[in-house]
Write a protein that binds this DNA or RNA. Structure first.
Length: 696
DNA sequence: ACCCTATTGATTTTT
DNA sequence: TCAATAGGGT
């Protein structure tokens, strides 16, 4: 058993680095705590919070003060709350929740800021119209007014035909706009122009309504469930919330002072992912505190090398918030020495980690090349070689959710949903959240329903599930045991090879049910009544192809048939993936999705391309030795890839394999600089074992 | 041969 | 929303 012995001197050193933090807390000197992957950053954060509580609780309570701890995700919030235990002195939340809480009561001021934002947007939208669209620019002032009037009168017609083909769309407006044929030359541009005109009009109206003190225009509302602003409806989303927060805090010194005096300690987790505006806010607080000679401690905890989302502040943080005391932790408490050596080379800057353990040897890292067709064999080989079991799982990292779906066994579900109009075109970005999220609140309506159907089916045959978890209280509370048994029997009769057959079976039994309990269970589950196969089918059609035109119906019906024709086993695989209580031997993730996690055995499937960028990982390897000499933009690209490499490779505790499925001739040397050597994967058991040292 | 327009299909992740 | 490609017109 390795990774278990910590020498007294290492333990002492680790304690020392904690004490450096504590010392800064005592002196109200703000810090930036950097630690690489697996260093125990969250541990340091928790210990710091505990330190403030233990030492200053009495003082804080006397002055009705609290400690703020902000995180990047809700999951992280929950984890910190759990590890910290119960206390009323610390408010743990996401940054958005906190900012909204701090500013939401300043209603008048927010409306004022909102009005200014509307006006700014009106100006820039008007500028866009003139600058981007030549045909529109060339119209005279009177013509522009006239055009606007016509289009405002025909708003409904415009939206009704919005998704029609260009030629058809043009036909609809040709006669109405006979003076403006030039504008109809390019329908895409035409739509953009008209949309912009509508938006400007909406914003003007909103400004008017604010001026008239109309009821719904007296407050700004933050909607965390919605990803886009609806400024004309006084609704803002995440990004604008931070923007308003920054403005209001910047503008009002009294607000700054209130925050400083109420929250003298602010801790920020994963600072590298935090939005730049948040750091700006902190900097304003810090400077104001200095001005009025009040105390405030701000502690940033994170790692710039793990910034994999471009919205994060990353290493620009020290330019924005100056005079931070830098504390680095160089121990690694996760991985074996072999892994640490490789991730140090990938990172190749600042922090060079060493293991905290004396017995840190025994891992293995290898870099293989192969063709795309060899992936499954490669994985299979390690499944036997590493003696993979549900207790010793293999975690396989791939780049896209589509690939995850494929290898996890629900390829058809993913691909068919991708074809629905609910999840394609302008809505394509919803697919991953609404089909694959493990947060049930984020799942789409239909995925949610299908998941509930699969869940009921599985719960009925799962011996560990209690009746109360399957049926709602109002179903079973007035039933005797015989009736209950009968109901369960009937529910269990629902069977089918495919989803469609299963639903047919559900509706057949629906007719058999004379007591009405089965009906009630199903009505609750489906959220509509008189369930039949045809009704279900048209429900899917309506929800997955909303507002569909007549000539698209055939295509849509065919897609619905595909969904119904998918095997129930595949829905089971999908169900298992979502709920993640996984007893599988091999588990697939996206690179990004593994952030913060750690696994004994990791295989990373890598290739040149990622997303729109054809030169992605090869770009990193090609420039590994001379990244300093790249132009600024290329350097940013390099760092982005480097960080993703660093995050994914540092998940491994013991065994790491990278399988590269493109040609590496041009950058083989640099790969070997990092990984020691590269080998061709030969699809033959005996040969591989020769090269490998077993280490499980 | 070249220009303009229409169509199509696509990365990751959080709030 | 964007970029690559297909397709039509001159």
């Amino acid at each position: 058993m390795s990774l278990s012995i910590i020498s007294p001197s290492n333990r002492e050193k680790e304690t020392q680095s904690l004490h450096t933090i504590f010392h800064s807390i005592d002196k109200y000197q703000s810090i930036i705590f950097n630690s690489g992957a697996g260093a125990g950053k969250t541990y340091a954060l928790i210990e710091s919070l505990k330190y403030v509580i233990n030492r200053y609780a009495k003082n804080l309570r006397e002055h009705k003060q609290k400690i703020i701890c902000i995180t990047y995700t809700n999951v992280a919030t929950e984890e910190i709350k759990e590890r910290l235990g119960n206390t009323d002195l610390v408010v743990v939340s996401t940054i958005h929740e906190r900012i909204w809480d701090l500013i939401k009561d300043y209603k008048k001021e927010l409306v004022q800021i909102h009005k200014e934002k509307l006006k700014e947007n009106i100006d820039s939208l008007k500028e866009d119209l003139i600058e981007r669209y030549e045909k529109y620019r060339d119209l005279g002032d009177e013509e522009k007014e006239n055009f606007k009037k016509i289009m405002l009168d025909n708003k409904e017609l415009f939206h009704k035909n919005y998704n029609a083909k260009a030629a058809e769309f043009r036909n609809v407006f040709q006669i109405i706009l006979n003076n403006f044929h030039g504008l109809l030359g390019n329908i895409i541009d035409f739509k953009k122009i008209v949309n912009t005109i509508y938006k400007i009009e909406d914003y003007y109206k909103c400004c008017d309504n604010i001026g008239l003190y109309k009821k719904e225009f007296k407050t700004v509302v933050y909607n965390s469930a919605y990803n886009r602003d609806q400024l004309h409806k006084m609704r803002i989303s995440h990004e604008t919330l931070l923007e308003y927060g920054l403005q209001i805090i910047k503008k009002y010194d009294l607000l700054k002072q209130i925050i400083i005096d109420k929250y003298p300690y602010i801790f920020i987790d994963e600072y590298q992912d935090t939005n730049e505006k948040v750091v700006l806010i902190m900097n304003y607080l810090q400077n104001h505190a200095r001005q009025i000679t009040h105390n405030i401690f701000i502690g940033y905890f994170g790692d710039t090398a793990q910034n994999i989302y471009n919205s994060g502040v990353g290493n620009r943080i020290t330019e924005i918030h100056s005079n931070l005391i830098r504390i680095d932790k160089e121990f690694n408490r996760r991985s074996t020495k072999e892994i640490i050596e490789v991730i140090n080379k990938i990172r190749n800057n600042g922090i060079k980690q060493v293991s905290i353990y004396d017995d840190c040897e025994g891992g293995s890292v290898k870099f293989y090349t192969a063709s795309r067709n060899d992936i499954s064999d490669f994985i299979k080989k390690y499944e036997t070689q590493w003696k993979i079991t549900p207790e010793n799982q293999l975690h396989c990292l791939v780049l896209t959710n589509e690939t995850v779906a494929k290898y996890s066994g629900f390829e058809n579900i993913y691909n068919t949903f991708k074809q629905t109009s609910k999840y394609s075109g302008t809505n394509y970005d919803r697919l991953n959240t609404e089909l694959l999220s493990n947060d049930l609140l984020k799942l789409g309506e239909i995925p949610n329903l299908l998941l509930k159907i699969v869940q009921l089916k599985n719960n009925l045959v799962n011996k560990q599930i209690q009746v109360t978890d399957i049926l709602q209280k109002n179903i079973y509370q007035d039933m005797n045991i015989v009736d209950l048994r009968e109901l369960i029997q009937l529910l269990k009769q629902n069977k089918g090879e495919t989803l469609g057959e299963y639903i047919k079976s559900v509706s057949v039994n629906y007719l058999k049910d004379d007591r009405g309990k089965y009906k009630k269970v199903m009505d609750l589950l489906f959220d509509f009544e008189n369930i039949s196969f045809d009704l279900f089918k048209s429900y899917l059609l309506e929800k997955l192809f909303p507002n569909i035109s007549d000539d698209e119906i055939d295509m849509a019906t065919e897609t619905i048939h595909k969904i119904l024709g998918i095997n129930m086993c595949e829905y089971d695989m999908w169900y298992k993936y979502i709920f993640g209580d996984n007893n599988d031997e091999i588990i697939y993730h996206t690179y990004h999705g593994t952030k913060g996690l750690e696994f004994n055995n990791v295989i990373i499937i890598m290739e040149n391309a990622f997303g729109r960028t054809r030169d992605y990982f090869n770009f990193f390897f090609e420039n590994y030795m001379n990244s300093q000499k790249l132009e600024i933009q290329s350097q940013q690209k390099f760092e982005q890839i480097q960080n993703l490499m660093y995050v994914s490779c540092s998940r491994a505790i013991k065994n790491l394999r990278v399988l590269y499925i493109d040609d590496i001739t041009n950058f083989k040397n640099n790969i070997e600089e990092i990984f020691g050597r590269t080998d061709k994967f030969i699809n033959n058991n005996s040969k591989i074992v020769l090269y490998e040292t077993l280490s499980v």
